[in-house]
Structures are given as structure tokens and as C-alpha cells.
Deep mutational scan, measured.
Amino acid sequence: RDEDEKEKIKEALKRGNEDKAKEIAKRANVSPEEYERLRKEAE
């Protein structure tokens, strides 16, 4: 379940949809550090 959320965040970031990614991260309680890591992976 947690991994699904992280995949959704990465997908949103790949599409350049940072607002959606942040919204998912907030809902999934993803830490800022984890969010940054996902953002780097998505580049």
C-alpha cells in the first residue's frame, strides 16, 4: 500500500505534476526526506 503511494508520487513527478505529487505525499504521510528521494528517482 505504501509502495503504491510512492509509485503514484513518482508517476506524478515524471509528468511534472508536482502539486499532485505533494498532495499524495501529504496524504500518505511521506516524509520530506523520502519525498526528495522520490523526486530524484523520478528525474
Rank of each mutant, 00 (worst) to 15 (best):
D19I: 12
R39G: 03
E18W: 11
K22P: 00
E43F: 15
E18N: 07
E23I: 06
K14V: 07
A25H: 00
K14A: 08
A12M: 10
K22Y: 07
I9L: 07
D19Y: 09
A21T: 00
V30P: 00
A21W: 01
E3M: 09
A42S: 07
D2K: 09
V30G: 00
E18R: 07
Y35Q: 02
I24G: 02
K40Q: 15
E34Q: 05
P32L: 12
E36K: 04
A42N: 05
E34H: 03
A28I: 12
E33G: 06
K40F: 11
S31V: 05
A25D: 01
K20A: 14
S31H: 06
E36H: 05
I24Q: 03
L38T: 02
E34V: 06
D2T: 11
E11H: 08
R39Y: 06
S31W: 03
A12F: 12
A42Y: 06
K8R: 12
A21G: 02
N29D: 09
R27I: 11
E18L: 10
A12E: 13
R27T: 10
I24L: 12
A42L: 08
N29A: 06
R1Q: 13
R37T: 09
K26F: 10
R39N: 03
E3S: 10
N29L: 05
E23F: 05
A42F: 07
I9N: 01
E34L: 05
L13E: 00
A21K: 00
S31M: 06
K10I: 10
L13S: 00
A21Y: 00
I24E: 03
V30Q: 02
I9D: 00
R15A: 15
N17K: 07
I24P: 02
A25Q: 05
K20R: 12
E5H: 15
E7K: 13
K20F: 12
L38H: 01
R37N: 10
E33F: 06
E43C: 07
R15L: 14
K20W: 13
E3W: 13
Y35W: 08
K6I: 15
A42K: 02
I9K: 00
A21S: 02
E11I: 09
E41G: 03
K14D: 02
K8N: 09
A42H: 04
A28L: 15
G16W: 03
D4F: 09
K26W: 08
Y35C: 00
S31L: 07
K6Q: 08
D4W: 13
N17M: 11
S31Y: 04
R1N: 14
K6F: 14
K10Y: 05
D19T: 13
E18S: 09
K22W: 12
I9Q: 00
D4H: 11
P32K: 11
A42T: 07
A25V: 03
K20I: 14
A12Q: 09
K6D: 04
D4I: 12
K6G: 09
E23R: 06
E36R: 04
E5Y: 15
K26Y: 09
A25G: 03
S31T: 13
A42I: 11
D4M: 11
D2Q: 12
E41H: 03
E43D: 09
D2C: 07
K8Q: 14
E33N: 06
P32C: 08
E11W: 06
P32G: 08
A12T: 03
E36T: 04
E18H: 12
V30F: 08
I24H: 04
A28G: 08
Y35L: 08
E5L: 15
P32A: 13
L13C: 02
G16V: 02
D2I: 13
K20H: 11
I9R: 00
D2R: 08
A21D: 01
D19L: 12
R15C: 09
K14M: 11
L38M: 06
E41L: 07
E23H: 05
K14C: 04
K14W: 07
I24Y: 06
L38E: 01
E11D: 12
D4C: 11
E43T: 10
E34D: 09
R1W: 13
E11G: 06
K40I: 14
E41T: 04
N17H: 13
K14H: 07
D4T: 12
G16Q: 04
E5S: 13
D2P: 13
E18I: 14
E5P: 15
R1E: 13
S31I: 03
E23W: 06
I9A: 01
K14Y: 06
K22R: 14
A12G: 01
N29C: 04
L13N: 00
N17R: 09
E23K: 06
E3G: 10
E18G: 06
R39D: 02
